[in-house]
Amino acid sequence: MPIPTLAEWLEEWSASRRHHLEASSVASYRIMADAYLLPHLGDVPLDALDVRRIEATYATLLTRGGRGGRPLAPRTVAYAHAVLHRALVDAVRLGVLATNPAAAVTLPRHAVDGRPPRRLRVWDARQVGQFLVASADHPLADLWAVALGTGLRRGELLGLRRRDVDVEAARLTVAVAVAEVDGAVQLKRPKTGRTRTVSLDDHTLGHLDERLRSSASAGADAPVFADATGGHLRPRRISDIWRAYVRTLPLPPIRLHDLRHTHATLLLAAGVPVKVVSERLGHTKIAMTLDVYAHVLPAMDRDAADRFGQLLSGD
Rank of each mutant, 00 (worst) to 15 (best):
Q127K: 08
Q127C: 02
G129D: 03
Q130F: 01
L132A: 04
A136S: 12
D137I: 07
D137P: 05
H138D: 15
L140W: 12
L140A: 11
A141Q: 09
D142V: 00
D142G: 07
L143A: 10
L143Y: 00
W144H: 08
W144L: 01
W144T: 01
L148Y: 00
T150A: 06
G151Q: 09
R153I: 02
G155K: 05
G155W: 02
L157D: 02
G159H: 08
G159A: 06
R163C: 14
V165P: 05
V167D: 07
E168H: 14
A169M: 13
A170H: 13
T173Q: 13
T173P: 03
V174A: 09
A175G: 15
A175L: 08
V176S: 13
V176I: 10
A177C: 08
V178I: 14
A179H: 12
D182H: 14
G183R: 09
A184P: 01
A184M: 10
Q186K: 15
R189N: 12
R189I: 05
R194G: 00
T195W: 11
T197V: 09
T197N: 05
V198M: 06
S199V: 04
L200T: 01
L200V: 01
H203W: 09
H203Y: 11
L205W: 04
L205C: 03
G206C: 05
H207T: 02
L208P: 03
D209Y: 10
R213K: 15
S215G: 13
A216D: 14
A220L: 15
A222C: 03
P223A: 12
A226T: 08
D227W: 03
D227K: 07
G231Q: 10
R234P: 01
R234G: 03
R237Y: 09
R237E: 08
I238G: 01
W242Y: 06
R243D: 13
R243M: 08
R243K: 12
Y245D: 06
Y245C: 00
R247I: 03
T248E: 13
P250F: 02
P253A: 02
P253F: 02
L256E: 02
L256S: 04
H257Q: 10
T262V: 07
